[in-house]
Amino acid sequence: MKQHIKIIDYKAGNIASVRYAFRRLGLEAGLAAYPDELKKADKLIFPGVGHARAAMNILKGKDMDQAIQSFKGPVLGICLGMQLMADSSEEGDMEGMGIFQEKIKRFSGNFKIPHMGWNSLYGLKGPLFKDVPEGSHVYFVHSYYMPQSSQAIGLCQYGEAFTAACSKDKFFGVQFHPEKSGKPGMQILQNFIDL
């Protein structure tokens, strides 16, 4: 059975890289810019790079925020995509979708911001991290983060422990970029395909 994965296209994400990553796994992911285009999809990828409120405004302008929240299958939010699924963000006082009950905060402290590079994961749980060993390094680029959460399925340490991955029902979020994270990243995308 061939499944249809669609990538939300709202001009705020590195869509090309996500498409290429799925292509390497033998799956052609389509793009969806409007709610209509989600009808035939089995699963959604919700990428995101850039400014939280600006991105949310684009989504709301097309009613895509509602379409994502009411989508019937699994959804994977990546980076800003995950943050937009939270309650709110300090970045531009963004009001989010409220799927993950956390407030996104800005890193502050005596360390480099953005948190950029390869960092290790721990506390990995659930099907998204099947065959992904504790301590695996994945690629992060972000200045805002989700604090440690009861919905976390993976943690990371930068200044303090923060949520690297979370889930609620069929919604998943990862703060890092699986499409740019070498072998463990590809395993995570394969696990999403296998859900």
Partner: peptide, 8 residues
């Protein structure tokens, strides 16, 4: 290159 490698 983007199509071939999974690092940034």
């Amino acid at each position: 290159v983007a199509a071939a490698v999974s690092i940034p």
